[in-house]
Design a protein around this nucleic acid. Structure first.
Lengths: 348, 348
DNA sequence: GCAACTTTTGGCAGCGCTGCCAATCCGGAC
DNA sequence: GTCCGGATTGGCAGCGCTGCCAAAAGTTGC
């Protein structure tokens, strides 16, 4: 039945069992060992249907004796649903997405699901490709980030008939389940906060907004709310790179070089803001006396800075967990607004 | 041939096609549509075996027309290898592991593999459970973290016959492929560096070492090298929590309260060290004049602090990528020492 | 035009498991 | 002892795809 060292085998039943490379052990082997039918083994292993206690013991003993590991590939093919959830995130560099994963995998595990992840690098074409790739595993559901997808992605998602949860944004129409918060409102809240505190010459330091649509929405909300307060951005710097501490530090330095008279800086993310804070420390700029700083996301690190960072805390872990639970539960399409929280901190 | 409002269907072949919920489209549908055999479609889709250009075009047109998505579950069951790699990491909170994932998923994608991830929360029993769960997907390989596993996990890994890569540690015997660096040597290097700079009253601030075996190895190496230099730890603080900025900040504060005369602090991780740095800033302790700080991992944030953090840079992304490539390549068992790099920084 | 190949193609038996259905067993009730 | 209904159990047809093998279609050389 397979490459047998140099003995020969009278019947397939005598072929060497697994252990480390031989014929894999199957449900049929367990059934034979336990002297019951295959369906009985299947029922016992899934605790589904009825069987006697004696049978259960027999089967479990056989499983242990043979070291049987069920083959979920076969199980999934034979049954319908797959107990796999695909998760598509733009990046693993920004801690925001591991947070989301964390919430999702924890909730999925409780429900007995497994997650397959894919990373898009904020590229919509890659998103389309990885969505296709994930769909080929016939997942029970898909978690994607944001509401903006290119037409091919939308088409695939819709055509697949798979439940989809779109995360971390609710500013726009969703396909099915939407879990997140309003980035636009977060931007507005940030602007109102800074304006309310009396800052007038406010600058913006952001990363690549064409790729990060949620950051673009915060930016738009921020500008609009400033305008309502009779203000305009006193300067801005877009770093053509993903959000990072370094981008924030260099961005603020560059912006101050051009517009030295800013009194506040709004960053597209907390890690950018932390970079800005480091710049202020290095340059000897008192915060917030000389320059106020405001971030976004509410990372732990901001809370622990000598002066806690003024920011917006977003429920990322909760979003992942909520989406996972909704997907598993299989209810109707919904939009869940988890909201966000203004953290006043001490830097603005 | 596809979704027809409320007609009835003469034969199963006329049953409504997918679109959003009907009978899923299969390879057989594509074959019929393209008027070729199923195996021909399969060959074209996998670019495997030979077929004419004309046939390729016909098949691709049919695929596009029907919106066919191959079913990898069925494909995997029918063929042998699964093009899935399971990745087991202890945590998603510490950026180290997303880094590892990043390297691995990027390399895997190039090879046409997909990754399934599972998180253990530094718990060996959970590791055993998730390894079992991942093995049931019959992955082509498994990436796990560290060399320490409980007996059940080892048994399963060995019995499965699946290739395994153990990452981020090379201090001990491995099962198959081992990719990483010596944590012990990193601890030693750190101690020698501090001792060489003339620090004499060195304290240690660490997180939960019973769970994080690699941190424990660094700690052991650090103590041993100090001893060789005729020194001993002048104090230590173990925070009973995972590594975090907060743990570092509180840990250093607590340690200094007990041992105010320390001249240097060695942290189990960079995020702990960053917390320590924040404490120094808040408490007005000059760094490194009053207290030197030394971390581990070489996170970006350390490089961008007003005074770059003295630390050890570890090749985490590279480790993930290397392991992924080795697993896909299928060579012999090996140990790959990627080494680490001392970053002198300005805090020690 | 034909033999000898090579390329292209189709048919079909599984891969290992689950779902359905029929068979068997068991414990009263009669 | 017999009959009945529910609890257990086994058999077997797929799930959708790939691998193998043989058939069909082209090619080339004479």
């Amino acid at each position: 039945m397979d490459e047998g060292g140099n003995r020969t085998f009278a019947s397939e039943d005598e072929a060497p069992r697994d252990g480390a490379g031989r014929r894999p052990i199957t449900l049929a082997d367990v059934a034979r060992e336990a002297r019951v039918g295959e369906s009985t083994v299947s029922r016992v292993l899934r605790s589904h249907g009825s069987f006697s206690e004696k049978t259960r013991a027999r089967v479990e003993a056989a499983v242990a004796r043979l070291g049987y590991v069920p083959n979920r590939i076969a199980g999934t093919l034979a049954s319908t649903g797959s107990r796999l959830i695909g998760i598509v995130i733009p990046s693993l560099t920004n801690i925001v997405f591991p947070d989301l994963l964390r919430g999702a995998t924890a909730a999925l595990e409780q429900e007995g699901f497994q997650s397959v992840i894919a990373v898009t690098d904020y590229d919509q074409d890659r998103e389309e490709a990885v969505v296709g790739s994930l769909l080929s595993w016939r997942p029970a559901g898909l978690i994607v980030t944001g509401l903006e997808h290119n037409p091919g992605t939308r088409r695939r998602l819709i055509a697949s008939g798979v439940r989809v949860a779109e995360l971390l944004d609710i500013d726009g129409p969703g396909l099915d389940i939407v879990v997140g918060y309003s980035n636009r409102a977060a931007g507005e809240t940030s602007a109102r906060h800074l304006a309310g505190r009396g800052y007038r010459r406010i600058g913006y330091i952001g990363h690549d907004l064409t790729k990060d649509r949620r950051a673009a929405k915060r930016y738009a909300g921020f500008r609009d709310a400033l305008a309502q307060a009779g203000l305009a951005l006193a300067g801005e710097e877009r770093v053509a790179a993903p959000s990072s501490v370094e981008a924030g530090r260099q961005g603020l330095a560059a912006l101050l070089a051009r517009s030295p008279d800013l009194d506040a800086a709004y960053f597209s993310n907390d890690d950018m803001a932390l970079g800005g804070y480091f710049h202020c420390l290095s340059a000897g700029l008192p915060v917030p006396g000389r320059l106020a700083l405001f971030g976004y996301n509410g990372l732990d690190v901001g809370r622990l800075m000598p002066q806690p960072l003024a920011t917006i805390r977003t429920p990322r872990v909760e979003a992942g967990a909520t989406a996972a639970r909704l997907l598993c539960a299989g209810g109707p399409a919904t939009v869940v607004d988890l909201g966000f929280e203004l953290i006043e901190g001490a830097t603005a």
